Computed example of a mutant assay.
Amino acid sequence: MKQEKLPTPLRGIVPPMVTPLLSNDALDVNGLEKLIEHILGGGVHGLFILGTTGEAPNLSYHLRHELVKRTCEQVAGRVPVLVGITDTVVSESLRLANTAAEAGAAAVVSAPPYYFTPSQDELVHYYKHLADRLPLPLFLYNMPSHTKVSFAPATVKAIAKHPNVVGLKDSSGNTVYFQLMCNALKDNPDFSLLIGPEEVTAEAVLMGGHGGVNGGANLFPQLYVDLYEAALTKDFELIGTLQNHVLEISSHLYTVSSCGTSYLKGVKAALSVLGICSDFMAEPHQSYQAEEKLKIRGYLKEIKSNMQGQYQSTVNL
């Protein structure tokens, strides 16, 4: 299987892909193919599967391995594929990492094992030992809202000394933390610092970050690529215009309900409305019903109208 070489540092927009499902243990294969082509068509710089947006903790191991194989086969080396291997069982993380390597993925991504909260010293020991055994480069994944622990900047700096640890995705939403991380890693120019929350992607790039892992890029990938490039060139007028589109997406599509998965339900419902893939959510979560989907459709019409012909889907709403 062709494997895309991982740039060091990895830069740009690396969408965290949703996992199109037909049921709790069946992929929406046609939807997966359409979604991958839709995202890659926006000029993104990589693809991240089996993260939070991919519902990884709620997917069976069989499904996770199948998704890795199918995704890598279709991407076929056009961009680097990053595979989430977060788990409470290290042997399962390693098994999935081996599948990823065999399929042609470029790197793996790991958030701290959840449920029991590790100390900072335990994180250093765990990730150095994990990196020793991985067949692919490793990105750390800071997701304190879900794992109950945040990587301290000193912890990341210590782990980053391992030659197989190549970057960090920060989804804390704390831009002060991200700036501290940029400062802590300033002497390691090959280490990639990527931001999760799309509302602050431009800000993160301006302060020295390398790009964004933005859920909205499932829907409008070129928008986020253009925002990243505008931040690189410090085109503040264009940043302002594109930032308004990004904020409109997050403030409307991600807030239809007040549940903890409102963001993900909104992205999946919007993809369904656009005719790209199924919006089935893995249990225990449920996809939006007709009333919520009608709101999503209305918001999509409004968003696309405000884009004035840019970033338009070919699907009529």
Rank of each mutant, 00 (worst) to 15 (best):
E92A: 09
V68S: 02
L35Q: 15
A160E: 09
S150P: 01
T71F: 09
H45K: 14
R95H: 12
L96M: 10
E73C: 09
S91Y: 11
L136Q: 06
K161T: 14
V156H: 05
I49N: 04
S60G: 13
E73Y: 06
C72R: 03
K69S: 07
L82K: 12
E102S: 06
F48C: 09
I49G: 11
T147I: 00
T53D: 08
Y61C: 02
A101S: 14
L96I: 06
A56T: 14
G42E: 08
L140M: 05
F151P: 00
A101P: 00
F151A: 02
H65A: 14
L40E: 11
A160W: 02
A76G: 13
A152Y: 09
V68F: 11
L47F: 07
L63V: 10
Q120S: 05
E73R: 13
A100W: 07
K148M: 03
A105D: 05
L59E: 12
T117G: 00
G54C: 10
T71L: 08
E122N: 07
H146Y: 13
L138Q: 10
L63S: 02
S145E: 13
E73L: 15
T52H: 08
K148F: 02
G42A: 05
Y141T: 01
P80K: 13
E55L: 12
I39C: 11
F48G: 08
V149H: 02
L96W: 04
A106M: 11
P135S: 10
V79A: 12
P113I: 01
G41S: 01
R133D: 13
A103Y: 01
G84V: 03
A160D: 04
T86L: 01
E92Y: 07
V83E: 04
G43V: 07
L82D: 11
L138G: 07
V75F: 13
